[in-house]
């Protein structure tokens, strides 16, 4: 079942002169992990941020359609607040708020009007899903900034899960982490796809090969090739994909 579909998705920066993304058509399946790979500046992150309309924060212009469950999120009627509630995002640098673990996870539910009495359960469940509960259950009131990078990133995942999204976007979630923390996050991703649709930008091709079901290769703002991860890595159809995954450039 397709969860996300883009039709001719283009993103322009500046005064509409710089093109960040060129007419991308892609269909992303529900309950799968889709990896976006490609060299720096190729449009992966721009594509990711087009899916929850974060590009507009930097004044980018978007053309084309992004259908989520068949509804175009750029049609002018979609409430961006509700949209971002449905589509969680985890960033490159772990970015917990400088407040307690509890308050970090409760932040999302609170702004969406969740009553205090339910918060404890939400916080606990979210931390459990993010495989962080056992490490922090006795330290919920400690400042999140005192934890390790890997723990902070899992906290950010828990924080995203707490608003009960359908899709989670990961923007190079492991690039600031050590190998052990990276392994834990990857394991977590595979568990999370049972319930969520996951799109992940990564620079690490082994990571894409390890965790993802489908892979999209971007180059200079264009989607070059998209298919099953095994096919992309074993029998790439496009010469440029092959060059990139075999490490000849990028």
């Amino acid at each position: 079942m397709s969860k996300i579909e883009t039709i001719g998705l283009s993103v322009y920066y500046g005064d509409g002169t710089v093109c960040g993304l060129k007419a991308v058509n892609i269909t992303i399946e529900a309950n799968k992990i889709t990896a976006l790979i490609g060299p720096s500046g190729c449009g992966k992150t721009t594509f990711l941020r087009a899916l929850n309309r974060m590009n507009e924060l930097k004044g980018a212009q978007t053309k084309g359609k992004v259908l989520i469950d068949g509804i175009d999120i750029y049609n002018g009627k979609v409430d961006v607040i509700q949209l971002r509630k449905r589509i969680g995002m985890v960033f490159q640098q772990p970015n917990p708020f400088p407040m307690s673990i509890y308050d970090n996870v409760a932040y999302g539910p609170r702004i969406h009007g969740q009553r205090n009495e339910n918060l404890g359960t939400i916080v606990e469940e979210s931390l459990k899903k993010a495989a962080l509960w056992d490490e922090v259950k006795d330290r919920l009131d400690e400042n999140a900034l005192g934890f390790s990078g890997g723990q902070q990133q899992r906290l950010c995942i828990a924080r995203a899960l707490a608003v009960n999204p359908e899709i989670i976007l990961f923007d190079e979630p492991c690039s600031a982490l050590d190998p052990v923390s990276t392994a834990r996050i990857e394991e977590l991703l595979t568990e999370l796809k049972q319930e969520y649709t996951i799109v992940i930008v990564t620079h690490n091709m082994q990571q894409a090969a390890r965790v993802s079901d489908c892979t999209a290769f971007f180059l200079m703002g264009e989607l070059i090739e998209y298919g099953k991860t095994s096919q992309i890595f074993e029998r790439p159809k496009d010469k440029r994909t092959e060059d990139y995954i075999t490490g000849r450039f990028g």
Binding site: M54, L57, K85, M89, F91, N95, I111
Partner: peptide
């Protein structure tokens, strides 16, 4: 205030005022 805090908050569906 780090940009990332703001993005995280907006990414969770907070309004600019929140």
């Amino acid at each position: 205030v780090p940009r990332t805090y703001k993005e995280a908050s907006l990414g969770l569906g907070a309004t600019p005022l929140q």
